[in-house]
Design a protein around this nucleic acid. Structure first.
Length: 274
DNA sequence: AGCAACGCCTGATAGC
DNA sequence: TGCTATCAGGCGTTGC
């Protein structure tokens, strides 16, 4: 399940291969991919002959800025994978491979997605932020603890729901929300507006620590996540609560609990988190 | 208007 | 063995 760290790893893997390079042709073979905007053939044909000027990340979204003022947006959803195949690479598309972007260099960027929750479409570059309603970037140094505190004060949501809300903070999913709340000692069920300034400061530190560690270890591969070369990430072995229900808390030894919160499984320690 | 629940989608796994 | 039920959760839509 790709969240901010996984998407950032893929972005860095692809940078040198696509930025400054020209797309020769592209083929999209699954209509669901373009359901938000355009058609598979329309998007595929529009990509042909375009140069990639930049590759950015906004939250969990990958943004390929193209020559001519449009951007290709790729969202991986739950099981989406972007796979780079250089000339001579052994990777071969299968029934779950729904798009291929062929570069003039001979390299191919494949999009593979078993559950088809992901999407791929074009937007004018200037409209990306407004159209996607993406919130603040947790790793942006301009985001201060005071900003997070204010976000907490202006809602009645539980703190975990706020972390998962992409229009407020961008890029945090179920894994990194649970891990950050554990590091900050904050219970996921707490109403966000009950957090103090000190809580918000600890939460921002916890978020940044866990997101940066996730990037350093090349992401969390629970089941489907793979980087652009097809390799899994190593961060799962450093998870302290996620998917560790019943196992001892690494801080106090009490069993990690799993509850349902807003239709999602949520993991925490009832001793260490308040 | 804000917030919680639902549905999309498929493969892995549990239970009978 | 083989069938069915359940679970995984990002996110747009629906409904309270």
């Amino acid at each position: 399940m790709p969240e901010l760290p996984e998407v950032e790893v893929i972005r860095r893997d692809l940078l040198a291969r696509v930025v400054g390079h020209i797309i020769e042709s592209a083929k999209i073979s699954e209509a669901r991919l373009t359901r938000r905007r355009g058609t598979p053939d329309g998007v595929g044909q529009a990509l042909g002959g375009r140069a990639v000027r930049a590759l950015r990340r906004r939250g969990k979204l990958l943004v390929f800025d193209l020559a001519g003022g449009e951007s290709l947006l790729v969202r991986l959803g739950m099981t989406g994978q972007l796979r780079w195949a250089a000339v001579g690479d052994t990777f071969r598309p299968d029934v779950h491979t729904h798009a291929q972007i062929i570069f003039a260099s001979g390299g191919v960027l494949y999009y593979r997605d078993v559950r088809k929750f992901g999407e791929m479409f074009l937007l004018p570059t200037a409209e990306v932020d407004r159209a996607m309603r993406t919130g603040r970037e947790p790793l942006d140094p301009a985001l201060r603890a005071e900003d997070l505190f204010r976000l907490c004060r202006e809602t009645r949501m539980r703190i975990k729901a706020l972390l998962l809300n992409q229009t407020k903070l961008a890029g945090i999913g179920n894994i990194y929300a649970d891990e950050a709340l554990f590091r900050a000692g904050i219970r996921p069920t707490r109403r966000a507006r009950t957090l103090t300034r000190a809580d918000a400061a600890r939460l921002l530190r916890g978020l940044r620590a866990v997101l940066e560690a996730g990037i350093r270890h090349r992401g969390s591969s629970i089941s489907d996540y793979r980087d652009a070369s097809g390799s899994p990430g190593r961060f799962v072995r450093f998870h302290r609560v996620y998917h560790r229900h019943g196992q001892p808390c690494p801080r106090c030894g009490a069993p990690i609990r799993r509850i349902q919160l807003g239709q999602r499984s949520t993991h925490y320690c009832r001793i260490c988190q308040h």
